[in-house]
Write a protein that binds this DNA or RNA. Structure first.
Length: 461
RNA sequence: GCGGAUAUAGCUCAGUUGGUUAGAGCACCAGUUUGUGGCACUGGGGGUCGCCGGUUCGAACCCGGUUAUUCGCCCCA
């Protein structure tokens, strides 16, 4: 018999893990709802046409593709088959793939349902996505994203809402983070100075690595690749970032002579607007303008945001990238034929948040508990009384189990112990005869015998 | 797509220059205790040492290949 195994980059989530994942999901979902977002789910499988060309060449390679059903090779091109040309053959033998993120399915949904949707459209979506990436620490082939997006509203108040969602959710989770934001307009303003779009794209790719390789590391790479004025531009950004307040950074940007550009003015004014909305609201986490934040080359066109852990309970050596990110993208639905719909959204990286909270050991105990009361019967005759009492407790909202069968008491109490059940209600010959039940507190060891209709009073003391 | 590391019981791992019957802890089962858990003690079940081949009188150990996992790089959450 073959040893059972999992495909690499995928995981089972056992009951203990699921309890904690649900704890996280519950808080994120509750926060989304409290800001007026409504749920959306889309299929795991999308047409490849929907997915391809949306994530760049690299992204296309990372798509999981599904073989067509039936005799899929029969209609395939003879030459391509003979040449073993996998890439060209793919389009002939695979029409569908697994979704790669939640944003493209959202765009597809909005375009297909434009007659039913009222803008601004606020939806959240908590589902699995798949990427055929090489797995490594904090990176999986199957993972979850928790997205909230607003479509069809240009107002910066949406960005303000999203930053508050980050702050609220992580505060409720009990994890300290740093919320960073930037505006693509600020970075776009560097394009003339860097002498063109190609240099600019590469520059943004490189500065995105600052977290990993530091100021010097980025500077070296920029120098190696001889990006015109790259070193100066990077130094300017770095110096601005070292200023202590968001306002000082904005002033410095305004005064930087090499990057004066329409895009910069738009970026600065939108950030000022954002800060004015958030100014008087108390926040649990720091929100800092990080002028080096680029977030890849993807579709972002306005504000970009990112969440990084900042909790001292996380072990020093536990390095993991961002645990959330988002931003504004103009013309989100353009590729599907619906023009001029702007969108802004954020995403929570559930799996990384879990890994962090696990490493920092900050899951509250209530995220672990399930059953509160276990009925232990000494003989089969007691089971029916136990069922009656268990129903009453459940009706009162208390998670209750009746141990299956009248096995040895030691075994039943072991079971309760392993499951961290707080109360054992023991029913033997004596209790049944007297119409009582022995209620034992498994934490203190205390045990009292009481009438069968008074369990609730016993355990709520 | 490229590089490094690892692979021994259900899990985490020991295993001496290559030498008899491959070990520990945890978990599981039973007992000490026929109605009282956590602790302790005693006993028990459990292994194709990833797989294939080679060297050797003899391989968990050395060599080659292969597969899987994992950590980095590219890229990303």
């Amino acid at each position: 018999m073959d040893k059972p195994s999992l495909p690499s980059g995928t995981r089972d989530f056992g009951p203990e893990v699921m309890m904690r994942r649900k704890f996280i999901i519950g808080i994120i979902e509750e926060t989304f709802k409290r800001f007026g977002f409504l749920p959306l789910e889309t299929p795991a499988v999308e047409n490849l046409k929907t997915l391809q060309g949306k994530y760049g060449d690299e992204g296309d390679q990372l798509l999981f593709k599904i073989l067509n059903n039936g005799d899929f090779l029969a209609k395939a091109d003879e030459n391509l088959l003979h040449q073993r040309d996998s890439k060209s053959l793919t389009s002939q033998i695979s029409d569908r793939g697994l979704r790669y993120d939640l944003t493209v399915p959202l765009a597809r949904f909005v375009v297909m349902n434009r007659d039913k949707i009222h803008f601004p459209f606020k939806r959240y979506q908590i589902q699995t996505v798949w990427r055929a990436d090489r797995p490594q620490k904090g990176r999986y082939r199957e993972f979850w994203q928790c997205d909230a997006d607003i479509l069809g509203s240009q107002s910066i108040s949406n960005e303000a809402d999203l930053l508050q969602i980050y702050d609220n959710a992580f505060a409720t989770l009990g994890l300290k983070v740093n919320i960073r934001f930037n505006h693509r307009g600020i970075l776009d303003a560097f394009e003339p100075w860097l002498e063109g779009a190609t240099n600019h794209d590469r520059f943004m790719q490189l500065i995105d690595k600052a977290d990993k390789i530091g100021f010097e590391g980025v500077l070296n790479e920029i120098t190696n690749e001889a990006i015109p004025n790259g070193a100066e531009a990077w130094t300017l950004l770095h110096n601005i970032n070292n200023l202590s307040s968001n306002e000082e950074k904005l002033t410095a940007l305004q005064n930087a002579s090499n990057i004066q550009h329409e895009a910069l003015l738009k970026g600065i004014s939108e950030i000022k607007h954002l800060l004015s909305l958030l100014n008087n609201l108390p926040a649990s986490n720091t929100m800092t303008l990080d002028v080096t934040l680029a977030r890849g080359l993807s579709y972002y066109t306005g504000m970009v945001m990112e969440v990084v852990p900042a909790d001292d309970r996380i072990p020093e050596d536990f390095r993991i990238g961002s645990i959330g990110g988002g931003g504004r993208y103009d013309n989100l639905t353009g590729v599907f034929g619906l023009k001029d719909v702007t969108g802004v959204g954020i995403s929570f990286g559930l799996d990384r948040i879990y890994d962090l909270m696990d490493a920092a050991a900050i899951f509250p105990t209530e995220s672990m508990q399930s059953t509160v009361v276990l009925f232990c019967c000494m003989d089969e005759n007691a089971l029916s009384s136990a069922f009656g009492m268990a129903k009453n407790l459940r009706d009162a909202g208390i998670s209750t189990e009746v141990y299956p069968g009248a096995v040895k008491l030691k075994k039943q109490l072991d079971y309760a112990n392993n499951k961290s059940i707080q109360w054992a209600c023991i029913l033997g010959e004596q209790e049944i005869a007297d119409g009582t039940v022995s209620v034992k507190n498994l934490i203190s060891g205390e045990q009292k015998t009481c009438p069968q209709n008074q369990i609730l009073q016993q355990i709520s003391q």
